[in-house]
Amino acid sequence: MIDFTNSAYVKMKQVDPNTVLGDIQPILINGEQVIGAYKAMRDYCVFTNKRVIAVNVQGMTGKKKDFTSLPYSKVSAYSIETAGILDLDSELEMYFSGLGKVKFEFTGQSNIVQICQIISGYIL
């Protein structure tokens, strides 16, 4: 499992979900749909209509991957920080019962408000 206690997970930018669909397709359940994908150098996270899937790509070849499933049903609270004039990055903090805080950082081009609306739609 990814160690979320060490600051932010990764600083990510939005990517086409099809670029990571091959990796996560086998772990999706019936009726689960990919809403968005965000990627850093190698690691990425995928927002679905059921959960956030955080993927930690490991090893030199990148064939080994750690998949962490973060279901919206376990979110007790979340907060977002939008990008500003000097600070171009945005942040999402989600608080999961039994796990604690998970923090994601996004580049300024990512639509953090859209992510907020998606999460709100599934947890409220």
Rank of each mutant, 00 (worst) to 15 (best):
S7H: 14
Y9V: 07
Y9L: 09
Y9T: 03
V10R: 12
K11C: 11
K13F: 15
V15C: 03
P17G: 02
T19P: 00
T19Y: 14
Q25F: 12
Q25W: 09
P26C: 02
E32F: 06
Q33P: 01
V34L: 03
I35P: 01
G36C: 02
G36N: 05
A37P: 03
Y38M: 01
A40V: 03
M41C: 05
C45I: 12
C45W: 15
N49P: 00
K50P: 00
V52Y: 11
V52C: 12
I53F: 07
N56M: 10
V57R: 07
Q58A: 10
G59R: 04
G59M: 05
K64R: 15
K65P: 01
K65M: 09
K65N: 07
D66C: 06
S69Y: 09
S69C: 06
L70E: 04
L70A: 02
S73V: 09
V75L: 10
S76H: 08
A77Y: 12
T82R: 12
L86S: 08
D87T: 15
D87Q: 14
D87K: 15
D87F: 14
D89Q: 09
D89H: 09
S90E: 05
E91H: 14
M94T: 11
M94C: 08
Y95G: 00
Y95E: 11
Y95W: 11
F96M: 02
S97A: 10
S97G: 06
G98D: 08
G98H: 07
G98W: 08
L99P: 00
G100M: 07
V102Q: 06
F104H: 04
F104I: 01
F104C: 01
F106Y: 13
T107R: 10
G108A: 03
N111A: 05
I112S: 05
V113T: 09
V113P: 01
C116P: 00
Q117M: 10
I118W: 13
S120C: 05
S120H: 13
I123E: 05
L124M: 15
